[in-house]
């Protein structure tokens, strides 16, 4: 479990001289993990993936894949074990799904026609396999791109924002698929996303990047614990001012930025009842109480300046 499938050390890269797009990035993806690579738009997720694959030339630092340094010598051997979907999928619009998969299969060794039909089945595109890809919808293209990356049964699957353009059903299917691949074949999966909720539901490990720098990297479990047991709760009430007085008596501070909700921090769920009771005792109507996703909060606090 401690073996690292992807490891970068002090990785640096800039597209232009004026700024650093990736700075001293250290990424560690353990074997058999589902690694969520999280960051806001423009933080350098796609750039990091391109560096890992060797599409971009790193300015300094190193990249190891499967415990081997990724150099010109080991390039083909490493890439043979990787299936990748980088940003929008690379597909030939004038050809149909099967023709696209055939071309992708030819570039690798020993991929049978059966396997092509199998991946089409996995991504649920069998019904549209003879349709030209330019007539595909965004989500269908994304699915086909995923099929291409799965073709060779790779040890490592790299997916850059795979749920981009997928409908809710598609997102859930993608999640299930990723978990299945991971559990049944032990495939290591590296997913980038700007949605924490997505990562939280599927991943075992998480790395958070901002402005090309790694802010946090650990297991999802550790991330959840790091915030402690404290919870943020949103309250919707009718008498805002009165409610504030009640809460002050309970030593609760409103941290909300809007007037619509009151936001307080509680130690445990039982404390929520205490707060509601106190409010109700003063005849303040409580319309809504919701526990905020504290990971979302953490993500925002980490990625905001």
């Amino acid at each position: 479990m401690n073996q690292l499938i992807v490891k970068t050390k002090n990785l640096n890269f800039s597209y232009t001289k004026t700024r650093k797009d990736i700075e001293d990035l250290g990424l560690e993806v353990p074997k058999g993990s589902i690694y969520g690579f999280l960051g806001p738009n423009g933080s350098g997720k796609s750039t990091t993936i391109r560096l890992i694959l060797g599409l971009l030339k790193k300015q300094s630092g190193n990249v190891s894949l499967f415990n081997k340094e990724h150099t010109a010598k080991t390039r083909l051997e490493n890439l043979d074990k990787i299936g990748a979907l980088i940003e929008n999928p690379s597909l030939y619009g004038h050809l149909n799904a099967v023709e696209n998969l055939k071309i992708a299969a030819n570039y690798r060794n020993g991929i049978s026609l059966e396997r092509i039909n199998e991946v089409l089945e996995i991504v649920k595109l069998t019904h549209a396999k003879k349709k030209k890809v330019k007539a595909y919808s965004l989500g269908m293209k994304q699915r086909l791109g995923l099929a291409v990356s799965l073709l060779s049964n790779p040890e490592l699957v790299i997916l850059d924002e795979p749920t981009n353009g997928l409908d809710p059903k598609g997102i859930i299917e993608m999640r299930t698929l990723i978990k299945e691949l991971n559990e049944q074949y032990g495939t290591t999966i590296f997913i980038s996303s700007h949605l924490l909720s997505e990562i939280e539901k599927t991943c075992t490990h998480v790395g958070i990047i901002r402005d090309g720098k790694m802010l946090y990297q650990d297991t999802v479990k550790a991330l959840k614990q790091s915030k402690g047991k404290k919870m943020m709760v949103d309250l919707e009430v009718d008498k805002f001012i009165d409610a504030m007085t009640v809460l002050e008596e309970l030593n609760k501070e409103n941290t909300s930025l809007t007037d619509e909700f009151i936001q307080i921090e509680v130690e445990s769920k039982t404390e929520i009842t205490t707060v509601i009771d106190a409010l109700r005792a003063k005849n303040i109507a409580v319309y809504q109480v919701s526990i905020k996703n504290n990971l979302e909060e953490l993500f925002l606090s980490l990625t905001e300046n």
Binding site: G54, L76, E77, D80, N88, Y92, V148
Partner: peptide
């Protein structure tokens, strides 16, 4: 047009 180069250059060829 198919942004195929990034795919081709990440293949084991």
């Amino acid at each position: 047009k198919s942004s195929g180069l990034k795919h081709l250059f990440a293949l084991p060829i």
